[in-house]
Design a protein around this nucleic acid. Structure first.
Lengths: 337, 337
DNA sequence: TTGAAAGCGCTAACAT
DNA sequence: ATGTTAGCGCTTTCAA
């Protein structure tokens, strides 16, 4: 806690309170002597201006929020989010803003969600980044309009006019390419494990996949909805096996699940890629850690995090960043397909 | 941003300003009628009290900080930290406090470190958790004494009397047991890859290992300092191989490195555990993902994060939590040793 | 260039 | 039980 106040500094420096304030804020209208006296007094007193007081009068918090509308395990257990956080953090770190992490697990009208919403509404942050938006996360609507919001991945559309942005990978293109690759391999009995269909990006990935199949006159032999977790990935693969679905190719909406699918398949004696070709999405670290290494759709995840932060920071600076930013994806062919 | 002020609420409710404040703060000394009038007015005006104003007068931020004195990649790339964050976040989430994540990468007098220090000093947070403290992180000293500080892992000792705490796993005991296991297996040519020796916990792990060997009349055939990253783990293993060190057992200070060691060994045609028995530390997810599965020292990492948060929250509540909390470790025997 | 004065929106005595 | 008053530490007109 700051001991000294601005008035004490003023007294020690032998100047008025506003002169100290001017020095603090780098005003040009301060004489050299005054400035130096103030700087000396500041050093002498170990003075640090009060954040709260400044926020009160400036009407800004100098902080941005990172909203995580997800269960904790899911979030921190997923390398995708780790990458996003790395990107976001690295950018915010360099800025003058502080970063508030706000977890909104549980129901949209639950304790956590309410805490997040009122934190934003009470001026705790000047803008927010939402990293995983599910349709039905209605608490988000309460904050949209009060501060700029940047989404990671396509969000639900909002009624109220508001400063919202989103940055996303080219999910549709990427999964289209993934499916085409499978088809190009001669696979015709293709299954898929999707991401949570209450998320925009997951829908897009599924659409790209479906379109590619349709274009080839194919339709999926099985569609199972996953939740991006390894656990559900393995479960889905087991189900396919148990139900004796006849498939020779599978597109899995993220690598975490895809790796789990590969392991499950191998354990069941199914050869990858000979019997079943597997394509993932993300090009996460796990893609090369699993054997056979995953063929997958690469996405610049960390860059996506950086871009989200950039967009928000620019919006806060009064610039007009693009409402939508798309980052390219590319197919990486390895061993699994 | 809050539109309405407390005075407007007071006017609409037909009461004085302090009555509104009382309702806000749950005072008992408010009549039913007054309370209801105020609540109605609040709802009507969508009133949310200003965080900044409250902080200013209360002299507290209602926020705690999570300080990460580490490079970003290292931090978010390490599942250990992901677990710690999960634990910390889950507890803070349930509290009335907000969570500020503060990354202090780079030099101790660099931009990031200074930003963190002044954020704490200017009243941005009421207390902090430091998740990876290296000797030489001098910026920490600037904040110790101004707010309660909880360290994850044994910190450097501080001169100034201050409210500092730490919670740690029983590193020494754990690695002692690990080494004993290797010895019990009949291995006598034992090497080790340590953690960064500028961190207390890493020192402790090394000490436990050394003590066990000494007690058995053994001394390590090689000691290589690592940094807990998979990359350095693999590099260390390669070095052992290149230098043709003759070893039949190795204790690696964390699982991320241990898994990399196993992979490197296998690639070089060294059988695990037949030729070399490998023991790791942490019991991270990777311990069971690698083949052969790692024998390792289990540590309740997430619980450690929760405990750190609990200690800080209790300190902030004016309770007197223990200065040192140790969490138990246990040896988990799997396939690698 | 500089200081004096007026708040920012809230809590906390102090009165009543 | 409730209103009045005085600040919390700062930025910002406004004069000088």
């Amino acid at each position: 806690m700051p001991r000294a106040t601005i008035d004490q500094v003023a007294k020690v420096a032998g100047v008025g309170r506003s002169t100290v304030s001017r020095v603090l804020n780098g005003s040009q209208s301060v004489s050299r002597v005054a400035r130096e006296a103030v700087e000396q007094a500041i050093a002498e007193l170990d003075y640090v201006p009060s954040r709260a007081a400044r926020s009160l009068v400036m009407k800004r918090a100098n902080a941005v929020g990172l909203i995580i509308p997800e269960e904790l395990d899911r979030f921190f257990g997923d390398p995708f989010f780790a990458e996003v956080m790395t990107g976001v953090t690295s950018r915010v770190l360099e800025s003058e803003y502080a970063l508030n992490v706000m977890v909104a697990s549980g129901p949209s009208d639950g304790f956590a969600a309410n805490k997040v919403a009122s934190f934003v509404l009470n001026g705790g942050v000047d803008g927010v980044i939402v990293v995983a938006h599910h349709f039905g996360d209605t608490f988000i609507e309460r904050i949209v309009g009060s501060v700029p919001v940047v989404f990671g991945g396509r969000p639900i559309p909002f009624d109220k006019e508001s400063e919202t942005f989103y940055v996303d990978g080219e999910n549709e293109k990427g999964s289209f390419a993934a499916a085409q690759h499978l088809i190009g391999l001669g696979r015709e009995k293709i299954a898929t494990i999707t991401g949570p269909q209450n998320m925009g990006a997951a829908q897009d990935r599924h659409k790209g996949f479906s379109d590619a199949l349709a274009q080839a006159g194919l339709s999926p032999v099985a569609v199972i909805e996953g939740d991006y977790s390894a656990q559900r990935g393995a479960a889905a693969a087991r189900r396919l096996l148990e139900e004796q679905v006849d498939f020779d190719g599978i597109f899995v909406a993220n690598d975490l699940m895809a790796a789990a699918v590969v392991r499950t398949l191998l354990e069941a004696g199914v050869r990858v890629p000979e019997d079943v070709a597997v394509v993932g999405f993300d090009d996460a670290a796990v893609a090369t850690e699993v054997t056979p290494a995953l063929t997958t759709v690469r996405q610049p995840i960390r860059a996506q995090g950086e871009l989200m932060a950039d967009v928000l920071l620019r919006a806060l600076a009064g610039e007009n960043p693009p409402g939508v930013s798309m980052l390219p994806t590319s197919l990486v062919v390895r061993e699994s397909a």
